[in-house]
Design a protein around this nucleic acid. Structure first.
Lengths: 142, 142
DNA sequence: TACGCAAACGATAACGATTATCAATTGTTT
DNA sequence: AAACAATTGATAATCGTTATCGTTTGCGTA
């Protein structure tokens, strides 16, 4: 069994960052939250509400650092603000309910390879791609 | 041959909007620009530079109205601001060069139908979807 | 274990994109 | 042409995010 605390320290270290309280708090929150996607404001609000000391600027800074070091993935849906989720290595796309905001993840190897083909056909060197399907989830359909 | 001016008037009328100078100027610009995607600021700047009177607030308002009435499509890439293009009815996706900003469009029926399948499998009722491939275009590769 | 210093923090100012406000102007309908 | 609601545009306000900068802290070293 892996010591979670240790692994968090290591992740931060491997990112070339000092292990500080704010960073530990933020990473722990992301790992323990049931919500997959968290915005900076949400991370800040949740930590403040649980009486963890943190500054909003730090939250933004740390989330960006975590993103750059591959700990987190940033998503820009059509909401006007970024949301973050742990990057567990497995690429996936999203189904987003525009009524209740629910997010589901999916991965379709066929779509992936077709995208790659398209990219090649246009002489593009793919670095990343994002596919989001907007609609109504089961519980939001009339 | 269709009278372009007339068709612009009609488009605006059909959207349930009064035919005003700012609306005509904006629609005409979108139709005549070689650039497919224009941001609100760009539309404003271009009109001001060509000595057309317009206010920035009006540009934002009109672009949103045009989007809501189906005249325009809004895209939110990872740039931090929206861009707009004429909605010619044919859905397409985008290849975006993260170096020079170039945008290419593509349409792949196979990907479309696979997306639909995924959506069904998750009991989602698809309303819209966006697929963007980020990478380096031919001229930006080393 | 204490020291020193770069790295990191956090309060707050600044920023860029967008929206709200509201008095003045303009399209359309009569 | 009058009437009146819709529209405009200058500007203030808002929102998410980034920059500033004096203070604090992690951590390698003595």
């Amino acid at each position: 069994m892996i010591d979670k605390t240790l692994s968090e320290r290591e992740q931060i270290r491997e990112a070339g960052l000092k292990v500080t309280h704010p960073r530990m708090r933020i990473l722990r929150l992301l790992e323990e939250s049931e919500q997959i996607h968290l915005s900076a404001e949400e991370v800040y609000r949740i930590l403040i509400e649980t009486n963890e000391e943190i500054g909003l600027a730090t939250v933004y800074r740390v989330l960006t650092q975590f993103e750059q070091s591959g700990i987190l993935k940033r998503h820009n849906f059509e909401t006007g603000h970024s949301v973050f989720e742990l990057d567990r290595g497995e690429h996936h796309d999203h189904l987003l309910c525009i009524k209740c905001g629910a997010v589901e993840e999916f991965h379709d190897e066929q779509i992936e390879s077709l995208q790659y083909k398209v990219s090649e056909a246009h002489n593009f060197k793919t670095i990343d791609h994002s596919l989001t399907i907007y609609g109504h989830c089961k519980s939001c359909q009339v």
